[in-house]
Amino acid sequence: MTEIQRTAERKSAFVRARIKKICRKAIIYILLTLGAFSFVLPFLWMLSTSFKEYGEIFTYPITWIPRKWTIENYREVFSVSEYVNLWRGFLNTMLIVVPSTTAGVFSAALAAFAFAKIRFPGRDKIFFALVGTMAIPGVITMIPSYMLYNMLGWTNTWLPLMIPGMFGGAGAVFFTRQFMRGIPASLEEAAKVDGMSWWGIFLKIELPLSVPILITNFMFGFLGGYNDYLGPMLYLTGRMEMKTLQQMISMLNDTLGTKWGIQMAGACIAVLPTMLLFLFAQRYFVEGISLSGMKE
């Protein structure tokens, strides 16, 4: 085989490999695009419905762009404030979720620091037992939890929605521990040489370097608490002024009948804070997730 033939074969093999790589990437991008579209589609339908008149919502064929744009649904949402007050529901949700999530992220960071950096007997066994609790469905503990909170006199208060979250979740501990294992041990060793305590190492070294995963955990906790409907429905069955945003949105149907345009307008308003949170914290979110599996 001549040198020219060998060169031609190498070029042909290179072209084939490149074509395969391009085809593989194209398939991946197509699948990702379809997946993204499937997630965006319900939101687009919700947004479109919120600007439609009632008679157009169930017309066939479906109209994605309203024939006649109207903001009457948004006016109706706030016109029933005597019974369904979205602003009050939003404030209640913030008062429940923000303190609980903030304390929970800090508690999870404390536990994760101990599991990642401090050696003590049974450390790994305790950690795997903690992670194992993530496999327990929430519905299994729902009734015992309600009985316990009822016995403590916590029903019809915000305490059942706040206190458990202040101690952090197993998922938050897991992700934070994995992130902290990626922080070089040489930093804490240098701090020990300088006479710094474990508490000082946690506050001055580990915590500042773990900001991405802390923000990620805060986002997960905030979204879970903000969108929670089952918990408030179980524990907040009394006074109207204590109900959360999700309960208020659900009650739009009870107050105004089944008017989907008004329901969708309320949902659009409710989703704005979570979208803004993600936009501001997106960089930290991606960094926290991508680095959680790394270790030194």
Rank of each mutant, 00 (worst) to 15 (best):
residue 1 M to L: 14
residue 3 E to S: 13
residue 3 E to G: 08
residue 4 I to T: 13
residue 4 I to R: 11
residue 5 Q to F: 14
residue 10 R to H: 09
residue 16 R to A: 15
residue 17 A to Q: 14
residue 17 A to G: 13
residue 18 R to T: 12
residue 21 K to C: 09
residue 21 K to T: 14
residue 24 R to N: 14
residue 25 K to N: 10
residue 25 K to P: 04
residue 29 Y to C: 04
residue 29 Y to G: 00
residue 30 I to R: 12
residue 30 I to L: 15
residue 32 L to R: 04
residue 33 T to C: 14
residue 35 G to V: 11
residue 41 L to W: 14
residue 44 L to R: 03
residue 44 L to T: 01
residue 46 M to V: 15
residue 48 S to A: 07
residue 53 E to Y: 15
residue 55 G to L: 13
residue 55 G to I: 09
residue 60 Y to R: 05
residue 65 I to M: 10
residue 66 P to F: 12
residue 69 W to T: 05
residue 70 T to L: 02
residue 75 R to V: 13
residue 75 R to E: 07
residue 76 E to M: 14
residue 80 V to Q: 09
residue 82 E to V: 10
residue 82 E to I: 07
residue 82 E to W: 11
residue 84 V to I: 12
residue 86 L to V: 04
residue 89 G to Q: 00
residue 91 L to F: 15
residue 93 T to V: 05
residue 96 I to L: 09
residue 97 V to I: 11
residue 102 T to V: 12
residue 105 V to Q: 04
residue 106 F to E: 00
residue 107 S to Y: 09
residue 108 A to G: 06
residue 108 A to P: 05
residue 110 L to E: 02
residue 110 L to F: 13
residue 114 A to K: 00
residue 115 F to I: 02
residue 115 F to L: 01
residue 116 A to G: 02
residue 117 K to L: 11
residue 118 I to Q: 06
residue 118 I to N: 05
residue 119 R to A: 13
residue 119 R to Y: 14
residue 120 F to A: 01
residue 133 T to V: 10
residue 139 V to W: 14
residue 141 T to G: 05
residue 141 T to M: 11
residue 141 T to E: 01
residue 144 P to W: 13
residue 150 N to Q: 11
residue 151 M to Q: 12
residue 151 M to R: 11
residue 153 G to M: 08
residue 154 W to A: 10
residue 154 W to F: 15
residue 155 T to M: 11
residue 156 N to C: 05
residue 166 M to F: 09
residue 167 F to S: 05
residue 168 G to T: 08
residue 172 A to C: 09
residue 173 V to G: 06
residue 174 F to V: 00
residue 175 F to M: 12
residue 175 F to W: 08
residue 176 T to M: 13
residue 183 I to D: 02
residue 187 L to W: 07
residue 190 A to Q: 10
residue 194 D to G: 02
residue 198 W to R: 10
residue 199 W to G: 02
residue 200 G to P: 00
residue 200 G to W: 08
residue 200 G to Y: 04
residue 201 I to F: 06
residue 202 F to Q: 04
residue 202 F to G: 03
residue 209 L to D: 02
residue 209 L to G: 03
residue 210 S to H: 07
residue 210 S to Y: 11
residue 214 L to V: 04
residue 216 T to S: 06
residue 216 T to N: 04
residue 217 N to S: 09
residue 218 F to G: 01
residue 219 M to L: 13
residue 221 G to L: 06
residue 222 F to W: 09
residue 222 F to A: 00
residue 224 G to M: 02
residue 227 N to V: 06
residue 231 G to K: 08
residue 236 L to G: 04
residue 238 G to S: 07
residue 239 R to E: 13
residue 240 M to C: 01
residue 241 E to P: 07
residue 242 M to G: 07
residue 242 M to H: 05
residue 256 L to W: 07
residue 262 I to N: 02
residue 263 Q to H: 12
residue 267 A to G: 06
residue 268 C to I: 03
residue 269 I to G: 06
residue 270 A to D: 03
residue 272 L to A: 12
residue 277 L to A: 13
residue 278 F to W: 08
residue 280 F to T: 06
residue 281 A to R: 02
residue 281 A to E: 01
residue 284 Y to A: 07
residue 284 Y to F: 15
residue 286 V to L: 13
residue 288 G to Q: 01
residue 288 G to N: 02
residue 290 S to H: 05
residue 291 L to A: 14
residue 292 S to H: 03
residue 295 K to L: 08
